[in-house]
Design a protein around this nucleic acid. Structure first.
Lengths: 196, 196, 196, 196
DNA sequence: TATGAATGAGCATTCATTCAT
DNA sequence: CATGAATGAATGCTCATTCAT
């Protein structure tokens, strides 16, 4: 039973390389030769690990996003002094992460809009836990009287959309522009604070 | 010089057709055969009007954006009851226009990020007059004491960025999501209103 | 209006070359590079005349068979001394033609069995007029009392099948073997002669 | 030497599986992966039993044909009432067998025409015993005065060729068409019967 | 002996671009 | 001016075959 390489490890390695290539050139302008060369493998070998180009793309993105959002399902964000601070911390953390992984974000945006017909659903699914967490924080804040009564669903959506916009600015414009979105987000959260 | 007019007319005609094709299929998935066929010309003839595919794309987009923002240089927006209402009307008008031309917007976003290396500058150039108009309105409002004192440049940038986000949501998500951005924009403008 | 080459002529030239290549290598083992090279054209150019490889194959065969059977719709075969001699002449003519175009025949057999799922129908369609002619000759012979009463349809079918077998022997075996089929065919026709 | 037996057994098993795959998909459209998977072996292992794909094909066919014609070397066919009935029985038996194994026959025809350059010789070799048997039956009939004097070699060849034609019709056309060949064969044998 | 891993060679197809007329 | 004709350069994908373990 010869088993020179760890199949899963190789797969991940390829995906990592592929993600870089896709991020740099986009799906259409990239080609398997590049990915193969960067992987130190032949084009044919890629087909032992993945069905086709789209398959590689799909899994590269999947892995990328799963890594990115997995932590927001944790409970560590709930014990804050003020629920809005919890939300704010989460949002800041997401934006910081995004800022540190611009390539992945860029790729994600271009990518999903091509493969997944319903980007909205795709993002929704991936951020479902995150949205749930924010919703819970908002509700507890309203219950405790520290967040003014508001339509929770709409506020959650606003927050998510601003986070998306942050990523968009990051991708297509600059870090500076993205930071402006951060101030808007902060300001929107501020409005929710109940005046005593 | 009647020939010259024909030449220009035909050029514009090609660009118009090209824009439709690009909007429908995207840059990569479109091809010159389609544009030629839709123009009623041969593929080779396109090369007498433009250097190459990218050239056609570039000018098609340029024309598209120029058409879109040309009206915001007018002065009709200045005579409003409250300068913020003027800004609001302009923003709403832009967003309405965008909503009515989703394909062009989508194209624009994907396009410019490919050709123009500095998307930020490109957008800046195209919206320069618009930004100038908003800035003037803000300043006059502050001078008149109806807009609270604020960093005008930052506010203008916020507005522009939110408008961009509106377009982004329109392109990659849905009309509904985009409308959420509109509420954020309204809310941000509301904050600027001076309390008496 | 430049028109350096006659489109139809070029098409025919390509088909002629293609037929040779297909006849020599078979459909699967042939490739467009070969056809292109033999045509003195580039691979890409072939696609200006035909949709794809299968298309070239299809038309090459179509042309080949149309040429081959077109003459049997003529009436020149009817004025013979004995209707069986007419049939015999036709059959001999077909077999002679086949013997002179072994490559085309070989190609036809391999080809149609791959592309056309219903080879039987394909051959039937192409030999319909021929069958009709033989049927008419048989009937007139029976009416005149020089051909013994028989099931005309079955006899026609026998003749066609023996002609096919002749081609089959020609293709997969040898000219000599095929000639044995000719003697069988002759002998079968002889049986039909009415003894006085 | 138990290993040796296993080796042969496995070889036969592979050939059996291969024959099925080849019969189903044809030589070109089949691939070693399929054969390997169906054999429960890895692709690489096949190369320990056979040189290459063509080798597998060759032996698969060889085994197939040997199985098919092996019984006609027996003597059970000689004790018939009339030698022509013996021949007729043999021919019918062959045609029945062929009709029951259309896939193998089809494969055989396509196959041998590819690998064996001299198909005629190949078939001759495989049917040598059969031809010998028929020849003996014919001669004994002539000697006994129940079969009219004829060129035995030619008649044997006719019979073999009609049997081939039966298989050909079976492969490329239909069972019905093949049956027409059977009537021709019967009719040809009938002619040999000596009139008293 | 068996096989997981890797690959070279090959193929159909697309398309932007050039050029002679 | 306009265009029919031609093509080079890519690209995704397949598969028989080799080899180290």
């Amino acid at each position: 039973m010869p088993k020179k390489v760890d199949h899963e490890k190789r797969k991940e390695m390829i995906l990592k390389v592929a993600l870089e290539v896709f991020a740099r050139d986009g799906y259409d302008d990239s080609n398997l030769s590049d990915i193969a060369k960067s992987s130190g493998l032949s084009r044919a070998t890629l087909y032992q690990y993945f069905q086709n180009k789209e398959d590689i793309y799909y899994y590269a993105l999947k892995q990328s996003t799963e890594d990115m959002f997995v932590k927001y399902s944790e409970v560590e964000w709930t014990g804050k002094s003020h629920p809005l601070n919890g939300i704010l911390d989460i949002c800041d953390d997401i934006m910081d992460t995004a800022a540190r992984n611009i390539d992945q974000i860029r790729n994600l945006i271009v990518a999903v809009s091509k493969i997944d017909q319903q980007l909205e659903d795709a993002v929704y699914r991936r951020t479902a836990k995150l949205q749930h967490l924010i919703r819970r924080l908002l509700r507890s804040g309203i219950r405790d009287g520290v967040i003014s009564d508001c339509d929770v669903d709409i506020e959650v959506r606003r927050i998510v959309i601003l986070l998306e916009s942050y990523c968009f600015q990051l991708t297509y414009f600059s870090h500076d522009s993205a930071e402006v979105v951060r101030t808007v987000l902060h300001s929107q959260l501020e409005i929710l604070k109940k005046l005593e």
